[in-house]
């Protein structure tokens, strides 16, 4: 049994998190979420015109996620670029994780496109992607009843751990990785997957631990959105200088 985590973290300590909003000016909303060495950029376009028309839903809008890992993002070997079965699946679970909070009935016949790109991946990418996407959706001004915060939990030889990294995921003994997404206000779980070896008791304990820690992730997301609107005053003087100098 492992005595300590290989990087010195506590069992219930996530990797360092950096989150930002509004990192892609061209998009309607964007988010950046970095947890350890997993880095996600999310860009939201929409609600916008939806083609093809046969996919329209006249009662509610549609949310469409695109998950993509850059070929250079993995550890060493170059990944095969472009869509693949895994990306397609994760795109789908991300849609399911995000759509319960987004009030899509406000936008009938339209689509909200959420593009999530990964420049660096070291386990927990779908969780980082969901966190970045939630920031981006809020930044785009889309009505949503709450954020979605996401984090992986699991166990290493029976010890409950939070936010497994790449090394831990490939641990030689018994290991389970459980990506989890939670709506902070209600505690509802919108994503729950599992990969590895475990027993039901461990899973329940891991989820319980994860729910507490995920509140911290939600707080980081909230702060990222607040920092988007800085308190510093507008630089009128600098702008005025541009004009008065041009005149001379």
């Amino acid at each position: 049994m492992a005595v300590k985590r290989h990087d010195g973290r506590k069992w219930d300590e996530p990797r360092p998190i950096v989150a930002k909003a509004g990192v892609i000016p061209q998009a309607d909303g964007s988010g950046f979420f970095k947890i350890g060495d997993s880095t996600a950029y999310a860009a939201v376009y929409g609600p916008q015109e939806f083609h093809p028309r046969k996919l329209h839903d006249p009662k509610r809008g549609v949310i469409r996620c695109h998950y993509n890992m850059q070929p250079f993002s993995g550890p060493g070997s170059r990944g095969r670029p472009g869509p693949n079965r895994r990306a397609k699946e994760i795109s789908m679970v991300m849609e399911n994780a995000l759509s319960p909070v987004v009030q899509l009935e406000d936008y009938p016949n339209t689509v909200v496109d959420v593009h999530v790109e990964f420049t660096e991946t070291d386990a927990g990418s779908r969780c980082a992607g969901i966190c970045a996407a939630a920031i981006a959706l809020a930044d785009a001004g889309i009505t949503m009843k709450d954020m979605v915060a996401s984090l992986a939990v699991g166990h290493l030889d029976g010890e409950i751990v939070v936010d497994l990294d790449g090394v831990e995921e490939h641990h030689k003994g018994e290991v389970a990785d459980i990506p989890l997404a939670v709506i902070p206000s209600t505690g509802e779980i919108t994503l729950l997957q599992m990969d590895g070896v475990t027993d039901p008791k461990l899973v329940l304990n891991a989820i319980k631990t994860g729910r507490d820690i995920v509140a911290k992730v939600a707080e980081v997301q909230r702060q990222a959105l607040l920092d988007r609107y800085p308190a510093d005053s507008p630089q009128w003087k600098a702008l005025a200088k541009k004009y008065t100098e041009a005149k001379q």
């Binding site: 309607d28 909303g29 929409g46 609600p47 916008q48 009030q103 406000d106 809020a138 930044d139 785009a140 001004g141 889309i142 009505t143 949503m144 009843k145 709450d146 206000s185 959105l225 609107y229």
Partner: peptide, 25 residues
Amino acid sequence: RANRLGLAQVDGKVLKTIPLAGRYL
């Protein structure tokens, strides 16, 4: 609770948010 990013506005007992982003409806 707020359901969008915005500035909070208190009008007596009525609470609303003024959006800071979003497409035109």
